[in-house]
């Protein structure tokens, strides 16, 4: 043994650490620097810039610029119709002052928040998680069939699903309107879209979007080692305790990501317009519908831009809150 330790004690590792040749690196970095930038594929910064240009132009012109432009448009009385259409003037913060006092805007903002909270944060997350969790170990074609139904609901074009739900929720009130499928099954006559418009919309959106959460949670639950759950079960943890103590801490990041994405998608969803066009009496007038009406039915592009900017700010706040929660999980 001592022969070995002799060897390791005399191994001259210190020599390499502060080798005098190390000084060479600094002064002569220059000539090789052009090659230095090349990555493993030999794609230097120059080529990277060339490759990035088409996407950067499209994203810049059709995504970032319009968003930034709302800032300017929201300060004008830019209009499609009337006197202002020809004479756009700078109005300062007038549009924003109007928004604060506009009861229709306040109403719309409230409806949007209820819609996002009810259908996305509660509805889609809970149903999507329930499907993923309850069926975690269910190996059966039946499961794939039910999941496929949910996914089809997610993938069918919005103008089709909108009409499907219109027909589904029709009630035979009055002589002209026919009965829909739901009333037919339940043997009642309720025109759901007229009598419970926002609730109908929320249930519609749960139907429409739960597939995404389900798929995301399916993936997330696979990352929980089965041995963790088995340990919890053996030690007598109830289903609720298993979820709280074992599952949720492991998939918190997935949950936050899911909630963030579907909140943003639902907030900006235009499908309510296709179902109810904001009616009856503005009861389903979410912000996108409101902006559309102000801009393209009333022609007041300046005011609509101001509302759009407020929407962008709210969305950014939502994103920042979730991302900071996500980061606090990581650290």
């Amino acid at each position: 043994m001592s022969a070995r330790s002799t060897k390791s004690s005399v191994r001259p590792t210190s020599r390499t650490a502060d080798h005098p040749l190390g000084q060479i690196a600094e002064p002569s970095l220059g000539p090789a620097a052009s090659l230095e930038a090349a990555g493993p594929s030999g794609l230097g910064r120059k080529w990277a810039a060339v490759f990035l240009t088409p996407s950067a132009v499209l994203i810049g012109v059709f995504l970032i610029f319009p968003a930034a432009w709302t800032l300017y448009l929201g300060l004008t009385n830019f209009s499609l119709v009337g006197f202002a259409a020809a004479h756009t003037t700078f109005e300062g913060l007038a549009n924003y002052r109007n928004a604060i006092t506009d009861p229709e805007f306040g109403n719309s903002l409230l409806i949007t928040l209820v819609y996002v909270f009810g259908s996305a944060i509660v509805g889609q997350v809970v149903l999507g998680f329930a499907m993923a969790w309850k069926w975690k170990d269910w190996r059966s074609p039946l499961r794939r069939a039910v999941e496929a139904l949910a996914i089809i609901a997610w993938i069918v074009p919005s103008s089709v699903v909108a009409f499907l739900w219109i027909s589904y929720l029709q009630g035979n009130i009055g002589p002209l309107v026919e009965q829909g499928t739901l009333d037919f099954i339940l043997h009642i006559s309720t025109n759901w879209l007229l009598q419970f418009p926002l609730l109908s919309l929320i249930i519609f959106n749960v139907w429409r979007g739960s597939a995404f959460s389900m798929m995301l949670f399916n993936g997330a639950l696979q990352s929980v080692p089965p041995s963790y759950l088995e340990t919890a079960r053996i030690s007598g943890a109830s289903e609720f305790q298993q979820l709280r103590d074992v599952v949720l801490p492991r998939i918190k990041g997935h949950v936050l990501t899911d909630v963030l994405l579907i909140s943003l998608w639902t907030f900006n969803d235009f499908t309510p317009y296709l179902l109810t066009a904001g009616g009856p009496n503005g009861q389903t007038e979410t912000l996108p519908v409101f902006v559309y009406k102000v801009a393209f039915q009333q022609g007041n592009l300046g005011y609509a831009s101001a509302i759009s900017l407020i929407m962008l700010v709210i969305n950014s706040v939502i994103a920042v809150v979730y991302l900071s929660l996500l980061r606090s999980r990581n650290t």
Binding site: F78, D269, L287, A295, A304, N315
Partner: peptide, 21 residues
């Protein structure tokens, strides 16, 4: 950020400037 941004902007928040552009 662009990914999040795109899901917002293409949704509806930028319909006015996109129309004008």
């Amino acid at each position: 950020v662009l990914l999040l941004f795109s899901s917002v902007v293409t949704g509806s928040a930028a319909m006015v400037p996109i129309f004008v552009l």
